[in-house]
Nucleic acid binder design. Structure first.
Lengths: 142, 142
DNA sequence: AGGCTCATTTAGAATTATTCCAAATATTGA
DNA sequence: TCAATATTTGGAATAATTCTAAATGAGCCT
């Protein structure tokens, strides 16, 4: 599924606003992210991207993901150890990591709203990850 | 500064409860963590530990930190990219990462309290990192 | 104390994740 | 189209962590 015209325009606009050029690789990496929103690692994005663009390189995937993050088109998510994951959901939300099946769920919650920070701290962005069990794993009580 | 008797007892008890043995290395790594609570990386812990225990190895530092985390004596904190950091503060708190001076501050806030999770999700632990500017950096408005 | 068992330590190798590099190529604006 | 500059590429390099196998150490049983 190629990105539709609207997504294409939006990507183009965000890239140039951010001082980046539009390239087929960036378009493709973005479309890969949008296709399956399961918080893939850079390596997983690379594998998926290669299916339609066999010559794309790992370095380019990192470059594209970086550009997307800087343009505000994707978030980089760091859940404990291991590789960083990428998420094109830019709504305010937090992540639920299931310690049992290791899936990542988007939860629509504004984590930082109303938190009484000590005087002087100027928050910019809140990263909330909740660890626990997802519905499937908690009923199975494995 | 060596850990006091109470800390020593507590460490011993938590280690054995967790199925770990008490070793001089683990005691020393724990005392290093307690001495300067600036969220050091494993490498920084290694450097500090070597001052009083020159033969300790990196692998042992990782092993000790791991054991401490598993015993509930320290938390592993993952702030974006780069090395994991370690924090012996086990009170419920979150972290404020200053994007300007890159220091990490403990903030005494219960991040997850009262968050309305969707049905079925069983939260176990909340990891909230707030990015922004610390008081010193926000007044300097660098 | 002596011996057994198993955890731990150690140094270094191996692995994983990411960044860097320099040359070739592509994109944009004039 | 041309020049300037960003991007892509493959591979090398780096960073962070884990693994491995041998030596050591601790606790337990007799």
């Amino acid at each position: 599924m190629a990105p539709n015209q609207q997504q294409f325009e939006y990507l183009n606009q965000r890239l140039s606003t951010g001082g980046f050029r539009f390239t087929p690789q960036r378009e493709h990496v973005y479309s890969v992210l949008l296709q399956k929103r399961d918080h893939p690692t850079a390596e997983e994005v690379f594998i998926r991207a290669k299916r339609e663009m066999p010559d794309i390189s790992m370095a380019t995937v990192y470059n594209c993901l970086d550009a997307l993050v800087q343009c505000g088109l994707a978030r980089q998510v760091t859940l404990e150890r291991g590789a960083a994951r990428f998420c094109p959901n830019m709504r305010e939300h937090c992540h639920f990591y299931c310690d049992s099946c290791e899936k990542v769920f988007d939860i629509d919650l504004a984590a930082g709203a109303g938190l009484p920070l000590p005087k002087g701290f100027q928050p910019d962005r809140f990263d909330l990850t909740i660890h626990g069990r997802c519905p499937a794993c908690s009923t199975g009580k494995k």
